[in-house]
């Protein structure tokens, strides 16, 4: 199932954008980079369905659309059910000879609200039924579209409008839900995490997810300058730092076999390359309160949780846990 597709940066730059310019995303939006790269990895006829969220709002200002492919908007909770329906319809139309293409790819795109919280039930059902589609989660770690409310994907200590940092409470008190492990536990053929900074890795993983027979899940990190209170120019730098600090390690789970992807494997093999989470946190305004004397202890707590999750992942990937 390993993709044989070889490409250079020039091939990618030459390929026409299927997610076109003129969308209404904020300047420096990480998720639009993710979507552009995602659509460059398609291999033929593709149908996209998007849950309510930033990427639906910015790409379809009636009567304008940014999509150069057939695109369906659904409510927050049922994007996976919709993708399952599209896939089933194509299957029967192929049988009746009404669809002539040898394969039609279906991609479902949802934000972290539409995956972690609201859409989890439909997603779990579609994965269990084994529909052949790729589910892409672009994770900007809160409900950014409606005004930065906390979601299941918001990390510990992050200030959002519904978990504000004050004199007593240091932002969100709960940790990020390990959604990719939940999806891997469904025993579906392909689960992966990706970061737009490692664009080659992201494109290869998208192509693998499309090529695989059966459901595939791709969790992509998408920095949000508006919600994270960062400089718009730092989006890709944050996507890189999240991987280097092991806050968001890159790995794949192919038929239940965990394996680290190249950028994270380099850190696993030489642990001195692993950066402290402090470097990642200090760039973001949503963690600003952690750098006051009162809440400084929380940084150590975040480092501890990150290290624990990283060690657990190394064990799953069969890489000998080295002292970090």
């Amino acid at each position: 199932m390993q993709s044989e597709w070889k490409f250079t940066s020039k091939d990618i730059a030459e390929k026409p954008d299927l997610f076109m310019s003129g969308h209404r995303a904020c300047a420096g939006c990480g998720a639009t980079t993710v979507l552009r790269l995602l659509m460059k990895a398609t291999r033929g006829p593709t149908i996209v369905t998007t849950a309510t969220g930033c990427m639906q709002i910015v790409s379809s200002m009636y009567p304008y659309t940014s999509w150069a492919v057939p695109w369906v908007h659904t409510a927050f909770e049922n994007v996976a059910a919709n993708a399952a329906g599209i896939e089933a319809a194509i299957k029967i139309m192929k049988k009746k000879g009404r669809v002539k293409h040898s394969h039609v790819d279906v991609i479902a795109i949802a934000g972290d609200g539409g995956t972690y919280d609201i859409g989890l039930q439909a997603l779990s059902g579609a994965m269990e039924r084994g529909h052949d589609f790729l589910f892409v989660l672009y994770d900007n770690e809160a409900y950014m579209n409606t005004g930065i409310q906390r979601s299941g994907g918001t990390p510990l200590g992050a200030a959002t409008t519904t978990s504000p940092a004050g004199t007593v409470v240091p932002g969100k008190l709960e940790t990020k839900k390990p959604i990719t492990e939940i999806m891997a536990a469904h025993e579906i053929p392909y689960v992966a995490t990706a970061s737009p900074y490692y664009w080659r890795d992201l494109i290869i993983k998208t192509r693998r997810g499309l090529e695989v027979e059966g459901p595939a899940f791709l969790h992509v990190f998408a920095p949000c300058p508006r919600g994270w209170r960062t400089d718009t120019a730092k989006s890709m730098e944050l996507a890189k730092l999240a991987v280097e600090t092991c806050v968001f390690p890159l790995w794949e789970c192919i038929n239940g076999e965990y394996q680290l992807s190249a950028p994270s494997k380099a850190i696993a093999l030489s642990p001195e390359k692993k950066k402290p989470v402090r470097e990642y946190l200090q760039l973001q305004g949503r963690f600003r309160h952690l750098f006051t004397p009162k809440f400084e202890k929380l940084i150590d707590e975040i480092q501890k949780i990150t290290d624990q999750r990283w060690q657990r992942l190394l064990k799953k990937c069969g890489v000998s846990a080295s002292k970090t």
Partner: peptide, 28 residues
């Protein structure tokens, strides 16, 4: 990396071109 697809690759000139009609000036 451009989120807006505002930088085009022109293979015939072996050069890139900024499309200032769409560039939002994020600085990435």
């Amino acid at each position: 990396y451009c989120p807006d697809g505002a930088i085009h690759w022109k293979p015939e000139r072996n050069d890139i071109e900024f499309d200032y009609n769409y560039c939002k000036g994020c600085g990435i």
